[in-house]
Write a protein that binds this DNA or RNA. Structure first.
Length: 540
RNA sequence: GGGCCGCUAGCUCAAUGGUAGAGCAAGGGACUUUUAAUCCCUAGGUUACAGGUUCGAGCCCUGUGCGGCUCACCA
């Protein structure tokens, strides 16, 4: 937009609102642009009026530097009040977005929001002068950023306020603010224009502050336990470490197909080979799968690997870490999620997958050694298995359909079928099962861990077996990763590994019903697509 | 991808198949301690889009778009 000079091209086209979603659908009709500009005419006229009065609506800096956030200004005034008669006046310069304004003749009130608090500003014509009062009264709009300097005071009704001595416009808003009382409720608008959601709905900001504090608590815990944080490639020539379909991309100069990672696992375990004993990574994974209240195409994952630990050690660390997060966020280990009171205090319940399925689905899969037998037994119990599934997937479906919804309190489910766990060590007493657990809270799968397989020959067999088991046409079939096998052949210490969805933890700790509420910009279908569809053929 | 539900002014919401409204926001006016300020006036709409039924459609039907819930796959 910089190419449009101030007094050059029709300024209408620089109005951000002309590209807002609700108008993109209609933007091809010029009449709508005209109507749009009519609605904006008042604010655009104010821009002209401000400039001709010598007031730059988008100044580069404050005339007087900010001395206090809203919270600090209030605190400073409260402190001075406690001095009683000896109290000295508290002079402040504050800045923020004007959220409300009440005009009454030659005096007026406004609230500014700077992210720390709302602070009332009292503006009296006799104090600020004719010119500034006119600016405040007539040329400012809700949504404008302003700076205000003055002494702190209490109004007649007792509200701590800034008694404005001077006022500066910092940034003009050309879009109307949403309803000050109701905010924005439409979820599509809230997700597509998160900035509007954040500016008007204070509880949204709280969710993301809590999420940030949660991640901070995780790093604090792991750093304190001697882990180092590392970063591994997002763009990978061979994807792996999970059962999921990847996004593909292409490097032009290398003429090479690349995949966006679906997990960090294979790279982090290479680091154990290299001698880093405790590593973790917090980063983005990408999975080309369905979208739901607990699935976004890109999501934040925590994975760690710890040499000389097995999956029992990992369980102890997981329950310890989550209790640590809860204490940091709430002071205790009790949290409420969607009406359930959940206690994260260790130790959590531990139950084998087999026992859990016996308990909740009334079926002992150990009695049915083949997929066909198990599927028959499931049908006899009134379940409806996919006919094409292998035995591991059948067991997994029993878990997610019958067990998972019942696991409200934190629970480790352990010892998984080998067919769906190619990177985990076999259990010593049962070669069809592996030392793996998933943990569940509030009926949601939260994470996954193994005693990591470190036998290179076993790993090669397992990968080759997976190739056969899933068939060439299966989209979750993974390519062989020869370099990973090579790394393991150098010798990998026995270790316990763990992965968990940061977004799901954030849902849990912020009592959010959907992953979209803990993602600042959840993935939504583009609106532009519908406009382009009629004009041109989609690209192949 | 399947099923169900939704889409009306910038925002929040009304409107038996019969003239599309209100509050807030916006524009004009009154008001020197208000706080969802108050009072008077004004403007603002291709009811998501495209068809159909009907004398007449925001409402009924079909399709499309976007969203929500849900099922399937997955963390």
């Amino acid at each position: 937009m910089a190419r449009h000079s101030r007094k050059g091209v029709n300024r209408r086209f620089t109005v951000p609102g002309s590209r807002l979603p609700g108008h993109d659908r209609k933007v091809q009709k010029p009449t709508m642009t005209e109507e749009r500009s009519e609605r904006d005419a008042a604010r655009l006229a104010k821009l002209d009026e401000l400039r001709s009065a010598g007031i730059e609506p988008y100044p580069a800096r404050l005339q007087q530097p900010r001395t206090h956030t809203a919270t600090e200004a209030i605190a400073a005034f409260v402190a001075s009040e406690s001095d009683g008669d000896d109290a000295l006046p508290v002079s402040v310069c504050v800045a923020g977005r004007m959220m409300s304004r009440r005009l009454m003749g030659k005096v007026g009130f406004a609230h500014i929001d700077d992210g720390s608090a709302h602070l009332q500003v009292f503006v009296r014509r006799d104090t600020v002068g004719e010119e500034t009062f006119e600016l405040f009264k007539r040329l400012l709009d809700l949504g404008d950023f302003i700076a205000v300097c003055g002494e702190m005071m209490r109004t007649r009704t007792g509200e701590i306020s800034v008694n404005a001595q001077s006022m500066q416009l910092l940034s003009k808003s050309l879009e109307p603010m949403p309803d000050k009382w109701h905010g924005v409720k439409d979820v599509e608008t809230r997700y597509r224009r998160r900035y509007v959601d954040l500016m008007i709905n204070p509880e949204v900001r709280e969710v993301f502050v809590a999420r940030a504090r949660m991640v901070q608590a995780i790093r604090e815990y792991l750093d304190g336990a001697g882990f180092i944080e590392v970063e591994t490639p997002v763009l990978q020539p061979i994807y792996g470490g999970a059962a999921a379909r990847p996004f593909t991309t292409y490097h032009n100069q290398l003429k090479q197909d690349l995949f966006l990672r679906i997990s960090f696992e294979l790279y982090l375990k290479r680091l154990l080979v290299g001698g880093l004993e405790k590593v973790y990574e917090i980063g983005r994974d990408f999975r080309n799968e369905g979208i739901s209240f607990k699935h976004n195409p890109e999501f934040t994952q925590l994975e760690w690997y710890e040499a000389y630990a097995d999956y029992h050690d990992v369980m102890r660390r997981v329950e310890d870490m989550l209790a640590h997060i809860a204490r940091r966020l709430t002071g205790g280990t009790l949290i409420t999620y969607r009406g359930h009171e959940i206690d994260l205090a260790p130790p959590w319940r531990r139950v084998t997958l087999r026992d859990a399925i016996i308990e909740y689905a009334d079926l002992d899969y150990a009695q049915y050694p083949t997929a066909a037998e198990l599927a028959d037994a499931m049908r006899a119990k009134g379940h409806h298995p996919e006919t094409t599934s292998n035995r591991g997937r059948l067991i997994d479906s029993l878990l997610s359909n019958y067990v998972e919804p019942n696991l409200i309190q934190p629970t480790f489910v352990l010892d998984y079928p080998i067919e769906i766990s190619p990177l985990a060590k076999k259990t010593p007493d049962d070669p069809t099962s592996v030392e793996r657990f998933e943990y569940f809270i509030a009926g949601m799968e939260m994470g996954n861990a193994f005693s990591e397989l470190n036998d290179p020959l076993d790993q090669r067999e397992r990968m080759e077996w997976m190739q056969q088991l899933y068939g060439a046409e299966d989209e979750e079939r993974h390519p062989m990763d020869e370099d990973y096998l090579l790394a393991m052949s150098y010798g990998m210490p026995p270790n316990g590994g763990f992965g968990t969805g940061i977004d799901r933890l954030a849902m849990l700790f912020t009592d959010s019903a959907t992953i979209r509420d803990v993602l600042l910009f959840p993935h939504l279908r583009s609106l532009e697509r519908s406009d382009a569809a009629g004009d041109e053929e989609p690209q192949p």
